[in-house]
Design a protein around this nucleic acid. Structure first.
Lengths: 201, 201
DNA sequence: ACAAAAAACGACCGGTCGTGCTAAAACTGG
DNA sequence: CCAGTTTTAGCACGACCGGTCGTTTTTTGT
């Protein structure tokens, strides 16, 4: 693969990711994508052996973006414990007003269609859930959350709040933000978090 | 419209609803639907002026089913308060192992596509949320939940649990049921519900 | 039983989709 | 600068889609 090869490939993937976050993976079609990039349909197609390969590459790019923009800055900038957990959640939920979440939309599109896309999506969610559980476990070790709570259960409930908030964001607009915040606070409070430590700085 | 007219129309809608719950509203296509029913595509098409009319009719049928199978039996069989609320939730969540929820799938499909389908879906979710809030308010009036809790907020959180549970059901299978139950119990507990009253009979 | 009305059919249209194939164009290393 | 490789374009295909239209069959009211 030449220099120009990887350049156009990433150009394609960036544009494709933008389109997917608006119209979903199934809405992504080669013709309009090629037009938007000033390429021919077959020229674009040659970079990936099939449409599914393109979709998988887009999903992988989205996953890399997500880790880089949500998890990594929170880990680097905030100390272990509630501070870091809240930093993660803030960066996570702040993505929703910006546009549709490709992981939630993707799950809805492929949950009844076995194949590589479904597998990759299931894997992403599993990894993310485990990252949340790790952050929660560190809170426990610091005594900021009660030791008897099931961190996997709490990770599920955080994800559920995200899913519900995303739904309301997409359907009813920005008013959903307050609901998400209040839900997280109630959840963490019920796990023994001190109210004065729940600051969304 | 003749007798036979409404008969086949409802036959079409029943079959269409079954297909939609498997492959979504956008996956519903006239040809295969007609084949499955032993009708010609154009014969089926004549019952609805357009595909969107068919989709809207399917959504309306699904909404009637939902009210009839979830809300109404709980209202008729359980007294106001936590008993009724839990009866509603049980019937609601029991639908998820059976097949995909057309309302959640529909929201994901149309949240970025203005039109009659999006409007109808937004309306359904609004109505359902309000029915949940009513049941919660009755709990408050009976002293089974603290009076200062925001019932609309709790209704959102119940919906979020449903959305998260549905996601996990579709992607990871039946193990999600326990997570949903535990999440509801934590939520209602944090609203002042007595633990011994949280029985999923 | 019969005429009007409704329902169902079958062929077809224009359009879009993913995908192969071949040739031209552009880039790359020596 | 040139040979060899890679990237891109052009074109066509087969499949599938929603929708139209004129005709035929079935149902309905009397």
């Amino acid at each position: 693969m030449s220099i120009k090869g990887v350049e156009t490939r990433t150009r394609i993937l960036r544009e494709a990711l933008g389109q997917v976050s608006k119209i979903g993976f199934e809405g992504l079609t080669l013709g309009p994508l090629a037009d938007q990039l000033g390429l021919s349909k077959s020229g674009l197609f040659a970079h990936f052996g099939s449409r599914e390969e393109l979709q998988l590459a887009v999903l992988q790019l989205a996953a890399e973006d997500f880790r880089r923009e949500v998890l990594e800055p929170a880990v680097h900038q905030s100390p272990r414990g509630l501070r870091r957990l809240l930093a993660i959640l803030k960066r996570w939920f702040n993505r929703y007003p910006e546009g549709g979440c490709v992981f939630l939309a993707g799950s809805a599109e492929y949950d009844d269609r076995p194949g590589a896309m479904r597998d990759a999506l299931a894997d992403f969610h599993l990894q993310w859930r485990s990252a949340l559980a790790t952050a929660l476990r560190q809170c426990q070790q610091l005594g900021e959350l009660e030791p008897e709570v099931d961190v996997d259960q709490v990770a599920f409930e955080l994800f559920a709040i995200a899913a519900g908030g995303h739904h309301d964001y997409r359907l009813y607009g920005k008013q959903a933000g307050g609901r998400v915040k209040a839900a997280v606070e109630r959840l963490l409070r019920s796990c023994g978090a001190a109210p004065e430590k729940l600051i969304w700085k």
